[in-house]
Design a protein around this nucleic acid. Sequence first.
DNA 1: CTGAAAGCGCTTACAG
DNA 2: CTGAAAGCGCTTACAG
Lengths: 342, 342
Amino acid sequence: MSKRVTIAAVAHLVGVTPATVSMALSGNTRISAATRAKVEQAAAELGYVPSSAGRALRRQQAGAVALIVPNTSDHTFGHLYFMHVLTGLAKVAGRYGSQVIVSTSDGPTGTAYERVLQSQSADGVIVTSAAVDDPNMAALIASGLPAVLIGNSSGAISVGIDDVTASETITRHLIDVHGCQHLLHVTGTLDHQAGIDRQQGFLQAVHASGIESSMVEGDLSEPSGAAAVDHLPPSVDGIVFANDDMAVGALRVLQARGIAVPDQIRLVGFDDFGLSRLTTPTISTVTVPAEEMARVATETLFTLINGQQIPPTQTHLPVTYTYRHSCGCDDVASRRASPAAR
Amino acid sequence: MSKRVTIAAVAHLVGVTPATVSMALSGNTRISAATRAKVEQAAAELGYVPSSAGRALRRQQAGAVALIVPNTSDHTFGHLYFMHVLTGLAKVAGRYGSQVIVSTSDGPTGTAYERVLQSQSADGVIVTSAAVDDPNMAALIASGLPAVLIGNSSGAISVGIDDVTASETITRHLIDVHGCQHLLHVTGTLDHQAGIDRQQGFLQAVHASGIESSMVEGDLSEPSGAAAVDHLPPSVDGIVFANDDMAVGALRVLQARGIAVPDQIRLVGFDDFGLSRLTTPTISTVTVPAEEMARVATETLFTLINGQQIPPTQTHLPVTYTYRHSCGCDDVASRRASPAAR
DNA sequence: CTGAAAGCGCTTACAG
DNA sequence: CTGAAAGCGCTTACAG
């Protein structure tokens, strides 16, 4: 249990005041080069590291940003999506010398947002997977504390993708390239913007082409994907899932029933966070740049933390359409599109 | 940008001193019930939340624990293993009212351990995936700061599984149940204890049974699994992979070459963090209780943080053997075994 | 029993 | 130009 090395210890060793040590270490020009060298050497010798609590209290900022995941449901938290977000966040935070706090809003208190911010343990937060009517989200925005949402939300600063266009595009792929005549959409959770938008994109595509369509509500889980194909209208020849997890669940069921994918029914998913590459057949999907979204969101967050005012802005990053085997393509037809560039 | 509510503001509103507020809020019996009620109401009214910095500085503890991932290589960090660990850690930390900090040791500085601890931003750390000769690990243990390793390490307090027995058991499954005559082992990274132990377990099983065996060194990545089966000795009829990722990579290659799994070659993996369930055929594997390991490790960490002395102890949690299709079983032969109970 | 000071470790605004 | 005090917000050991 080695004793903590404080700034006073370094000062004592060099024979100066703590203030001098602080200034020397921060490169303040008012300290002579000679003194600075001595201080730096002493600090290194003693293994001095500034106390984050002392510094935070004095500077009035925590030196940390928090990632908040509202739905503690294991579904959200234990998901690869979360890993991609965390990876992107950590990279940028590291560049700003900031710690990363992971906070789940457990229990109905739900005030995870507020607690983290008000206790000043974080200077700002990245929020993921908030429901459209999440009251905490509204409270957070109202509080004026630095926050960036990953996803889409009017009224907040958000970084996401154009779910409508992406969903419309991959749906049209089934119609235009593969000639599907009756498409089923298995929706995501419709209290989340992404679920709503992906549904809308699907509808735009089928309405524009005039083909038949059906709709089943899902909850983004593998079982719900499986359940969605339990009673399939016979004429359905293609399914657009709001995420890959549901596509995986459905694929299992279809295969168990001896229905050939993509020969009898073509499938496409959404997200490409890691699953869709692994199944046989591999699943065609919209590749969502989750890590990049997190990086951009975190950069924006630090801009806010550094005092710059930014009005609510929705940033859309381009997605990639990754056509694998489940739609009938052959891993070759991958092509890029940038909704943001339109 | 709402102004911070300090303890002084609450004190002012009630007409008492900050000390009284502090005591009232912490339930100190020296404060009368009447005063406490008034303080609590005022605190709620103002939305008072204690400053973590002020509290940390005074109490000399951060109120946070850190999860440290030494290898920032995307391979480790973006992995589902990490999610399971984080989930378990977060649950326990939440119960202790502690924040969770995620820290990657980026760059060759490598002193992520020390920085987090010495800056007192965390009261203790959970370390994952440390190499056996990781000098940071040694320094950390020497420092006497609260730390628990997930995995196995003599000299540290660790929570893991009995990799030797688990690897031996699943290898024997291929020999005893499926009659394999020539097994290949694709190792993990051999500078990590898990890689060494799983290799040893494999060797014990093949030596005990006297069947033929081969060995290829892998690095736990999907491509290395693919590469490992590039030049396969013709008589090999079963492969034991040190993790599922490599098994997935190999499965792709074998299928592309028209080699039937499990009919011509049987495969087993290790970990079951999420991949092995998804492939066709599904991959038989050792189910490692990562989240549970993290929970136990974190409980132990808080015991240490609360001042209790614990000598270096290696805790082993029981694993489950999940026999799916890649070994020739039919998803039915799953059976449990508890090396810890022997 | 209770009031109010001291001090955790830091940095910066101030006095000299 | 430089030395040393003040004060961030909290809690507890001390004085009364």
